[in-house]
Write a protein that binds this DNA or RNA. Structure first.
Lengths: 196, 196
DNA sequence: CGCGTTTTTCACCATGTGATGAATTATGGG
DNA sequence: CCCATAATTCATCACATGGTGAAAAACGCG
């Protein structure tokens, strides 16, 4: 395609979607700090000013790129519906299936890379844990959800990071069923089992 | 103190140590990307060129700042010496005590913040797990250390991040003994217990 | 067809970053 | 005391970044 010196491209190229795709890939691969707007633009085949046009600031691009098309609470509702028995395995299975969804993987990896960034770490501590996980514990009717759900988080975070971000073998490539069998009992104990 | 326009300061100020301290604090608080050499210099009360003088590049400063005065393998030797029974609790206790050491906290937090940085993530996947953890599994004589030690890592990483970096309550403030009681059985099962 | 709007690039800005080299000051040994 | 060396700052560089505004091209509606 021959680009004009300026101005609108002919046809209906969805450059906005192209930018989002490029952003998701780069944020996942390189993290927020390691990804420049120019890199996103180059990867999308557009000029960097167009990124600003569509998304405003880099922060706004990040938010748009990492927007999940599903609400994790809906997926976790499947866990709650059947009560606390066996909830450990069901939770692990839900987390794995969410992460194994091709449409969600890049945004989720991009999000994961940002959790240790001081400016973003409250996303997890003050967002995900209280707003997503705690209500699950409450809905399950478990004892002390305020204590137990963070324990669940500590294992789930470790599992997700080692499998999908850090790619530590063999965790990275074990079948989901194996991981459910391994981690289900851990999560179950954190939910309902004895803690000492 | 009135600084001269240029030149050596009188006396024996250990500006090199001051720079290292400032670097440790800032890398721990803001991560590598969020910490500039000028910020380190300002915090140490010196000119940024002095940071280059003593440490060379920013990468070299990072390596120097995060150098641990202890070899974690020595601390983990205490775990190994008593064999696989009870090794779960001993491991959790060692990790907590290492992290609770005031001299080690800042370098460790700085390191932790870098584990999800794509350029550094191999430190953990190809460094810590095979070089530090795997030999512990081998020395303990457990079955399948190549599979089990990464599982241990997944929980230890989750615990350390939620307690010391993300500061998720109540994990962040529970006494170490409570955490040993909670996480010891998990690590023990990953070491020697049934995985399915 | 003309025009307003949308899309897109070019040109540029301010600021910050990691890094370099020269000038200056202090120190200690001969 | 002198001088070589080490420590320190100033001045500067090349480059990169997020961001802005104007000019140009395409589109679709009246």
């Amino acid at each position: 395609m021959t680009s004009p010196r300026r101005g609108r491209r002919p046809g209906a190229p969805d450059t906005r979607a192209g930018i989002l795709t490029a952003a998701r890939e780069l944020f996942a691969a390189q993290g927020f700090a390691g990804t420049s707007i120019r890199a996103v633009a180059a990867s999308a085949g557009v000029d960097a000013a167009l990124v600003h046009h569509y998304f405003g600031s880099k922060d706004d691009l990040f938010v748009a790129a990492l927007e999940l098309p599903v609400d994790p609470r809906e997926r976790l509702a499947e866990v709650v519906a059947l009560g606390p028995d066996g909830a450990g395995e069901r939770m692990v299975r839900v987390f794995l299936s969410v992460w194994d969804d091709p449409d969600l993987r890049l945004p989720l990896v991009g999000l994961a890379r940002s959790i240790l960034d001081p400016s973003s770490q409250r996303l997890l501590r003050d967002g995900f844990v209280p707003a997503v996980l705690q209500p699950v514990g409450v809905a399950l009717g478990i004892d002390r959800p305020d204590v137990r759900m963070p324990l669940v988080a500590s294992q789930v975070i470790g599992l997700i990071l080692t499998r999908y971000v850090l790619e530590v073998e063999p965790i990275a490539s074990l079948p989901a069923d194996d991981l459910v069998a391994i981690y289900g009992p851990t999560v179950q104990r954190y939910l309902t089992g004895p803690l000492s």
